[in-house]
Amino acid sequence: MLTYTIRRLILSVPVLLFIALIIFLLLQLAPGDPMAQVPLTVPPEVKQKMREALGLGAPWYIQFWKWLVQMFWIEPMVFIDWLTNHSSLLGWLPNTDFYTPCGPAVDGPCDLRVISWQTRSPVMDIIIQRMPQTLWVVGLAYVVAFFIAIPIGIYSAYKQYSAFDQAGTFITMIGFSVPPFFTGPLLIVIFSVYLGWFPSIYDTTHVVNDWESFVVQLKQMIMPVMVLALQVTAQISRFMRASMLDNLKQDYVRTARAKGLPERVVLLVHVLRNSMIAVVTVVALAIPGIFGGSIITERVFKVNGIGDALIGALFASDMPMVMTLTFIFAFLIVMANIIADVLYGVLDPRIRYD
């Protein structure tokens, strides 16, 4: 298993590089100019110097190579310096000084990070600042969806064609069919405008320091979490039901029942473990998928997360920000596939990779 995991991680490197190249080329072909938002009063020669400062005058392969160096060499150096200089986890190590920031005080070679064309700030700093908001909403939505979908799928399979199963099928069809850009405004109209229960805008500056502030935080998270959890719950519960139905017909289930094992043990020990093998793929691939859904949800509820940053960067033609965020999403998908393959062997002893 360890050998297989290492081999998959090594093979994922050229895959990610190829994905990065495709993303870069597509962004090069996309319409839009970062100088379009510059005021018309700026002279053309000043605009040209601004374009050269952003690296837009270089050939595409030079720009791509510079992004690779900045992303996979300079940014790790910045991260290592932060770990040894400022973090509480590894702050006891000797301070490193790998990264040399560029500036007027630097005389000699320096390291330029991936800079956002829109904000003129390092892209990774912006992502790190916005990531906690996304993880709070997306992470909670995923946990809620998982703990709701698994019991629904198990009970729907055990009580096939019952009223509960039919109601679950109807609700999951709605969850599959209705996109977040519809459910988001619908929940705002119902729960914010008419009922006034929850705020329509997510306040990212809110600080939780007592019980009342915790209640406020909980109220503003309910609607975006509901929107994201709806689709994931529908997906996981349907796959859980189908997998349970398939395993309930197997010979080992009849054998376990013939031995006199309690029905609860048959379902939750034997059938559930084998059924989770098929569900693992859905659960693992839903993680990057729900980040994609958060792009629209964050825009609807004004959550200051990475999804909202991606939409803003697309409107501003901020290629470094768009390139970095889309590559992060691609990285999540590749890693989710590797994790799913490894979990197959954990759940099913018959599966061997070595």
Rank of each mutant, 00 (worst) to 15 (best):
L16N: 05
G139L: 03
P122K: 01
I19F: 08
V280M: 11
I74R: 06
I23W: 05
Q63G: 02
Y4N: 07
A163T: 15
K49W: 11
E75N: 12
Q37P: 14
F181R: 05
Y61F: 11
V269S: 15
D81H: 04
V227G: 02
T233L: 08
W65D: 15
T204S: 15
P109E: 14
R273F: 02
H206N: 13
Q166V: 14
D203V: 03
I333R: 12
I23Q: 07
I328N: 07
S294K: 02
E263N: 10
L285Y: 06
L332R: 07
T84Y: 03
Q231W: 13
V280K: 10
K47S: 05
M50F: 06
F170W: 14
G196V: 02
I6F: 10
N85Q: 09
D33Y: 02
I287A: 08
L140W: 14
I296K: 05
V207R: 11
A141R: 01
P185N: 00
F182P: 08
A278G: 15
C102K: 07
I6M: 10
A53D: 14
L56H: 04
A336E: 00
W211H: 13
L332H: 08
L310E: 04
I154C: 06
V123W: 00
F329V: 13
M319Q: 13
A30S: 13
G153P: 05
V300G: 06
I126F: 15
P349A: 02
M131Q: 08
P180G: 01
W92F: 13
A284F: 00
Q70H: 09
G32D: 04
V13H: 08
Q48R: 14
I201G: 10
